[in-house]
Design a protein around this nucleic acid. Structure first.
Lengths: 214, 214
DNA sequence: AGTCAGTCGAATGTATACAAGTGTTCGTCA
DNA sequence: TGACGAACACTTGTATACATTCGACTGACT
C-alpha cells in the first residue's frame, strides 16, 4: 500500500466540486481576480449550493480564494512577490524535512522515490511536461514524507497549488526536464547516504532554480 | 490601523462555534480522541447543524480534528513526537521570517513589538501566565508579520493551536516569565539592528527552550 | 447640484427537511 | 452453537426554503 493521497476517491460531491474548481484555478480557466458565485457554480456542476459552499470554504482556508469587494470570493492573485515567498517557504519546509528524513528514512521511502525518478525519466524523454510536473510534485512530497512529519507534509501539500499556479505559462524543454531528473537522482543519493547538510543545501538550490525566474 | 487579526469579529455563527470548539480543545475540555457530533454541538450552541458543520470542517482542515472509525471526527492527539514536529516547524518558519523581516521591517513593526513586550513585562510581573501566553503568541506572529509573507503568517497562525495545545499543563513561574520577556527584548534589539543571522539563531534557541521538555 | 437617507435587490448565512451510507443487532439457517 | 444475512437505527451528505446583511440606486432636501 503506497500513498494513494492524490487518488482521493471523490465519494462526496463537495470534494468533487473542490477538485474541479481547483483544477480550473491552476489551469488558468479561472484567472486571478475572477469572482466565484455559489449559485453559478452550483448550476455548472449540477449540485446544490451546500457542497459548493463547502468546497469554496476549503479553498479559501487553503489561501486560493480571498474575500474581495461586494462580499465576493475572488481567485487569489499570485504576484511575483508571492511566488518568491512560496519558494522561500518550500526551501525552509522541505529543507527541514530533508534533514529529518536522513535519520527517519526507510528502504520503502527509497524505493518509492526511485520509482518516481524512473517515471520522471520516461516523461522527460517523451517531453511530456504535464506528467513530469505531476511526478515532480509527487517526488517532493514523498521526500518530505520520509521525515514522518504529518503537519509539515500537509503544509507542503497546501503550497502545491501555489507552485502549480506559478508554473502556469512555463516553457520546459525535454533537455531541461532531463536536467531536473538528474538533480532528483542526486538528491536521492544524498538521502540514501544520509548526508543531511549536503541534501539540504542541494535541495535549496534545486528548488530555487526550479522556481520561475522573476 | 494595526493588525486586529486576533480580534476577529464573530459576526457569523459558524465562526463563533468554531472559536468555541477551538477554545474547548485547547483548554482540554475536549480531550484528545473525543468524538464530535454535529447535532450535539448544534444543540449546545443553540444553532442548526449548518454552521456547526462549517466550523468542524475548518477545524479539520487546520489539522485539529481527524476522521476516525464510525465516520466520526475526533480531536487530534498531540503526541510528544508531534510537539517536536511543531517546534521544528516553528524554528524553520519563524527563522525564515525573521531573516526576511530584517530587510522589510518597518518602524511601526518595532513599535508594535515594543508595546507587546511592555505588556508582557506587566503580565510577567503580575504572574498572569494566561495573559502572557496570549501576548507571547501575538509577539511571535507580529515578528513574522514584519516579513510581509502572508502565506507564512497564515501557516504560523495554524500552528498556534498546536502550540497552545502542547502547553496545556505547563507550569510557569513569574521568574520564568520575566526571563522570556528578557529574551523577547533581545530578539527585538536584533531585529532593530537588522542582524539577520544572529536573530535567526537566537530565535531558534528561544523557541526550542519555550517548547515543553519531553 | 451635491449629499444624505431610505428603500430595494442580490448575494451569502442559516435552518430544516430529505437522502444515502454505514455499523449494529437480531434473527434464522446450517 | 456459530455464522451469515437482512433489517434497522444513527450519522453524515445534500437539497431547498427562509433570514439577514451589505451594497447600490434613487429620491428628496439643503
Amino acid at each position: 500500500m503506497t500513498t494513494e493521497v492524490s487518488t482521493t476517491r471523490s465519494s462526496t460531491k463537495a470534494e468533487r466540486v473542490r477538485q474541479a474548481v481547483l483544477a480550473d484555478i491552476v489551469s488558468g480557466a479561472l484567472p486571478a481576480g475572477a469572482p466565484l458565485d455559489e449559485v453559478v457554480l452550483a448550476g455548472q456542476h449540477a449540485v446544490s449550493r451546500t457542497p459548493v459552499r463547502e468546497a469554496l470554504r476549503r479553498l479559501q482556508s487553503d489561501g486560493l480564494l480571498e474575500p474581495g469587494p461586494r462580499r465576493q470570493l475572488l481567485v487569489v492573485d499570485v504576484s511575483p512577490a508571492r511566488r518568491r515567498e512560496v519558494t522561500t517557504l518550500r526551501v525552509a519546509l522541505e529543507g527541514a524535512a530533508a534533514v529529518h528524513a536522513c535519520t527517519t528514512r526507510d528502504d520503502d521511502d527509497l524505493d518509492r522515490l526511485e520509482l518516481l525518478v524512473l517515471k520522471q525519466r520516461r516523461a522527460a524523454d517523451a517531453g511530456d511536461a504535464e506528467t513530469f510536473l505531476r511526478l515532480d510534485e509527487e517526488f517532493h512530497l514523498a521526500l518530505a514524507g520520509a521525515a514522518r512529519m504529518p503537519t509539515l507534509s500537509r503544509m507542503l501539500a497546501q503550497l502545491g497549488a501555489f507552485v502549480r499556479l506559478g508554473r502556469l505559462g512555463e516553457v520546459t524543454t525535454a533537455t531541461h526536464l532531463r536536467g531536473l531528473v538528474r538533480e532528483h537522482e542526486e538528491l536521492l543519493a544524498l538521502l540514501r547516504s544520509r548526508a543531511a547538510d549536503d541534501l539540504r543545501a542541494r535541495l535549496a538550490t534545486h528548488i530555487e532554480q526550479t522556481a520561475p525566474r522573476t
